[in-house]
Simulated scan of single mutants.
Amino acid sequence: MDQNAIDLGRRSFLTGRHRTPPDRIRPPWSREASVSAACTGCGACVPACPQHIIALDADGRPALSFAAAECSFCGACSEVCPEPVFDRAGAPFEHVALIGANCFAGRGIVCQSCGDACPEAAIRFRPRLGGPALPEVSAERCSGCGACVATCPASAVSMSTRRLEVAHG
Rank of each mutant, 00 (worst) to 15 (best):
I123T: 01
H52K: 15
V85K: 14
C71N: 12
F13P: 08
C81L: 14
S155E: 13
T40F: 03
E94T: 13
P22C: 15
V110A: 12
D23L: 08
A55E: 10
A156T: 06
P135I: 02
A139N: 07
E79S: 10
G41C: 12
A69R: 15
A58Q: 12
I54N: 10
P153S: 09
A167T: 04
V46K: 03
M1E: 15
A91H: 05
A68T: 11
F86G: 01
P62V: 09
L98Y: 07
R31I: 03
T20C: 06
D116P: 06
L164H: 07
G16R: 02
N102D: 05
R107F: 00
L129I: 13
E83W: 00
V80Q: 08
C71A: 10
R141E: 00
A121I: 00
F13I: 12
C39Y: 00
A167P: 01
D23Y: 09
G75N: 12
D59G: 13
R31E: 05
F86N: 01
G75M: 14
F125C: 04
V46G: 13
G115N: 07
G108D: 01
C111N: 10
V166T: 08
P21K: 05
G106F: 03
R124L: 05
A91T: 07
S113W: 04
R107W: 00
M1C: 15
S143C: 07
P135F: 01
G146W: 08
A122I: 05
A97F: 07
S160H: 00
R31A: 09
C111A: 06
R61A: 08
A117F: 10
A89T: 12
V46A: 14
I54M: 13
S113G: 03
T20Q: 14
C77R: 10
L8E: 02
A89P: 02
G130R: 14
A156K: 06
E94S: 12
H95F: 02
A5Y: 09
V85G: 09
A55D: 05
A154Y: 02
G169M: 03
R126V: 11
V149F: 07
D57N: 15
A154L: 08
E94P: 14
P119C: 09
A105V: 04
D7M: 08
F93Y: 15
F104D: 00
S72M: 13
H18G: 02
H18R: 10
V35I: 06
R26S: 03
A68E: 09
L8N: 00
V80G: 07
F66V: 11
S78W: 03
I53S: 13
M1T: 14
A91G: 00
H18F: 14
S36Q: 15
L134S: 02
V35H: 05
F93T: 13
Q112M: 06
G131K: 08
A44S: 15
R163L: 13
S113T: 06
G108R: 00
I25G: 05
A44K: 14
R163T: 11
